[in-house]
Amino acid sequence: MKINPKEYIGKTIFITATNTNVGKTYACKKFLNYFSNSNLKVGYFKPIETGVENNTPLDGTRMLELTKKLNPDFEKVSINDCVPYQFTLPASPYVAKGNTYIDIEFLKEKKEYLQNFCDVLIIEGAGGLMVPIKKEYFMINLIKEFKTKCFLITPSKLGSINDTLLSIEALKNKNIDFEFFINLYEDINSFEKVSKPFLIDYFETLNFLQDL
């Protein structure tokens, strides 16, 4: 699939994945550079980051620094705008937040604020689709409430077929508009024989992050 950058002007893209450590931050970097190279002003937003050390959200800070290099208008954005909720425990937001109340309306306001400085806003989720934010509110609910396009990042390792299909079914059940991209980072040598034959037969075409 060839992404047409002009179709995303004024829009947001939520980067999620089948699980943690599948490559969401790497994907954000790829898409930030891709849209910037297409002469669009890019923005970045990570509503919640857990596992924060020394009061510094590592992923959010790295991506904000990159975004500022690509789009000088984002110099106005602080790390607290970019990553509103920061928690030290490396766990789901529901657990990591402790007694903190995560205000979804506040996050929607932050999203709208950041859109003032860019043509396309890349939003990075935490973990996979069913990572809990509240007792009965998951990352997939946040995607739906943001009314955003979703890019699902899937792995190349053994088990990727199951992980990919389950996540796609969840997105379809919520009527969320999405595309999926495979991150060739694990079991690369065996992917061609183990997983790709079914995936290519089932989907006919595959999108790889490494092709951006």
Rank of each mutant, 00 (worst) to 15 (best):
K2G: 08
N4H: 12
K6A: 12
Y8S: 06
I9A: 13
I13E: 05
F14H: 09
F14S: 08
F14K: 10
T16L: 01
A17P: 02
N19D: 15
T20Y: 09
N21Q: 14
N21F: 11
G23V: 06
G23I: 02
G23P: 11
K24R: 06
T25Q: 06
Y26E: 08
A27P: 07
A27S: 13
C28S: 15
F31C: 11
L32Y: 12
N33L: 15
F35N: 06
S36P: 03
S38F: 12
L40D: 12
L40H: 10
L40V: 11
V42Q: 03
G43V: 07
K46Q: 07
I48H: 04
E49V: 09
T50W: 03
V52D: 07
V52C: 11
E53M: 01
N54V: 11
N55A: 13
N55M: 13
T56I: 15
L58E: 14
G60E: 04
G60N: 05
G60Q: 04
T61K: 14
T61H: 08
L64P: 02
E65Q: 15
E65N: 15
K69Q: 15
N71K: 10
N71Q: 12
P72N: 12
F74Y: 14
F74Q: 09
E75V: 03
K76D: 09
K76G: 00
S78P: 09
I79Q: 15
D81M: 06
V83N: 11
P84R: 05
Q86V: 09
Q86I: 05
T88G: 03
T88F: 00
L89W: 02
L89S: 10
P90E: 05
V95D: 09
K97L: 02
N99Y: 07
T100Y: 02
I102Q: 11
F106H: 14
L107Y: 08
K108Y: 07
K110T: 05
Q115G: 00
C118A: 01
V120I: 14
V120D: 04
I122H: 01
G125C: 11
G125K: 13
G127S: 15
G128T: 10
M130I: 14
V131D: 06
P132R: 14
P132M: 08
P132N: 15
F138T: 04
M139Y: 08
I140T: 06
I140S: 04
N141L: 01
L142D: 06
K144F: 05
E145A: 02
K149F: 13
F151S: 03
I153M: 09
T154L: 04
T154K: 09
G159V: 03
G159A: 11
N162F: 01
D163T: 03
S167G: 09
E169A: 08
E169H: 10
E169S: 12
A170K: 13
K172D: 04
N175C: 07
N175H: 12
D177M: 03
F178P: 05
E179T: 02
F181V: 08
F181Y: 13
L184N: 00
L184E: 01
Y185I: 05
E186D: 05
E186I: 01
I188W: 05
N189R: 06
E192R: 14
E192W: 03
K193V: 09
V194C: 07
K196H: 00
P197V: 04
P197G: 02
F198I: 13
I200A: 01
I200T: 12
D201A: 07
D201V: 00
Y202V: 01
Y202H: 12
E204M: 08
L206P: 09
F208N: 07
L209W: 06
Q210T: 02
Q210R: 05
